[in-house]
Computed example of a mutant assay.
Amino acid sequence: MAVQPVWHFNRSALAAIALSTLQSGLAQAITLMAPRQMGKSEFLQYDLLPHAEEHGWRVRYFGCATVSPRALTRRLQEALSDFAAGEKWLMRQFARLAGQHAATARAAFPERLVQELAQLRNEKKPSLLVIDDVDRVLQLAGGDTLLREILRAFAGTNGQARLVLSSTLTGHHQGLPALLQQQTTVLTLPDIGDAFVHHLVGQYHQLTRTKREDDNPFGKLSPYQGITWGQVDEGIMQDAFNRLQRIPYYFRALVEDLVLNPERAPAEALQVQLARLQRHRVAVLSWEEMSRLDRLLLTEVAKGTRQFYGDTLRQYLAAQTGAARVSTSQVQSSLKKLMRNRVLGQEADGRYLIIDPHLAAALSVTDKA
């Protein structure tokens, strides 16, 4: 297993719940859902897998986000074969490198995977495979079929091999692909909690104290001289965490910034991270690049509006944009552009949703204000 990073906030209790769900047979496969940058990959690698290994499971991790889309299908199939082959995986890997049985391996992957996973029934250790960011597989041509084959193969192991998938939450729970809803038990990664703030503030004080102690014996002119060390306390940092929409990625970046730049006030460091959050909210099209009409329509989506072409709404849009009128085609063009740039998605019933849950939350707050 990978060594836990220094800043890692342990969530072993949550890992124990997830593993017991698998071990008890309540679930054959789990899909862990979370918005972007909320720490799901870190939880899987540094909490769930070590916990499973400590309790006698043979574990393996495959991260889809680290592989080029062009090579993803091939690399995933290789990882599955290695996992299914157990301790013999090195022999299989060498066989592939030598070009042996390559045609056979490509020809009947689903049947071969079922047979190889069936061999795990004879092992004393249960096996756990984590496929992180599996939604990237579903974006590939034939990805839905591949994932169905994987789920079918694991279902045939009589509980000897379990599967944990992760996927990015896209604004609404209904945005989860139907395949994952129907064939896996869906768990949403909960809020990391205020203890996360306490943990990182403690890391901050420990690191800065070490720097001061290292400087003093040598009589150096420390870059930390004159800093008000007490300016970083839990009250200030709790407020910062909330203003950063409780996103662990940005809050940890804020604390790291304060450690590396001790002359920077917490308020200034917070503004830096708020600006980053604003820039990263939208996948392709930034907020600054949107037209006034785009922004107004996004706000209507956040409010739950479903009818976008009626006279009343178009008159309101015209008044807000300063135009003489806003036509149906203008509204349609704007909505299509937002979908093309992955700012908006659309449910099966035609309802629009904002893909980035952080942006959706921010617009909802703005509307209430």
Rank of each mutant, 00 (worst) to 15 (best):
M1F: 07
V3E: 13
V6D: 12
A13Y: 00
L14D: 05
L14V: 00
A16G: 08
L19F: 06
L22I: 06
G25Q: 06
Q28R: 12
M38C: 12
K40F: 01
S41D: 00
F43W: 13
F43L: 00
D47M: 09
L49C: 01
L49H: 07
P50L: 01
H51F: 13
E53D: 14
G56P: 03
G56D: 00
R58L: 02
R60N: 08
R60K: 13
F62G: 07
A65S: 15
T66Q: 15
V67C: 05
V67T: 11
P69E: 05
L72I: 09
T73E: 09
R75P: 01
A79W: 07
L80I: 04
A84M: 07
E87W: 09
W89C: 09
W89D: 10
Q93P: 07
H101Y: 08
A105I: 12
A107L: 14
A107P: 00
A118V: 08
L120E: 09
R121G: 03
K125Q: 15
S127C: 12
S127F: 03
L128Q: 03
V130T: 06
I131Y: 02
I131H: 03
I131C: 03
D133T: 11
L147N: 00
R148P: 00
I150K: 01
R152V: 12
A153P: 03
G159E: 08
L163G: 04
T168K: 12
T170R: 15
G171W: 04
H173Y: 08
L180N: 07
Q181D: 09
Q183E: 12
T188I: 04
D194K: 12
Q203F: 11
Q203R: 14
H205Q: 12
L207T: 11
L207N: 09
R209I: 00
R209V: 06
T210N: 13
K211N: 09
R212H: 02
N216M: 12
P217E: 01
G219W: 04
K220W: 12
I227R: 10
E234D: 10
I236S: 09
Q238L: 14
D239I: 02
A240M: 01
N242L: 12
R243E: 15
Q245T: 05
P248T: 00
Y249K: 10
A253K: 14
L260R: 10
N261M: 08
P262Q: 07
P262D: 04
R264G: 03
R264W: 05
R264A: 01
E268H: 08
E268C: 04
E268T: 10
V272C: 02
L274V: 02
Q278N: 11
R279Y: 12
A283I: 14
W287A: 13
E288L: 14
R295D: 05
E300R: 14
G304L: 09
G304Q: 05
T312A: 15
L313F: 01
Q320D: 03
G322E: 00
A323F: 06
A324G: 14
R325C: 04
R342K: 15
L344C: 02
L344Q: 00
L344W: 06
G350L: 02
Y352S: 07
L363G: 04
K368Q: 15
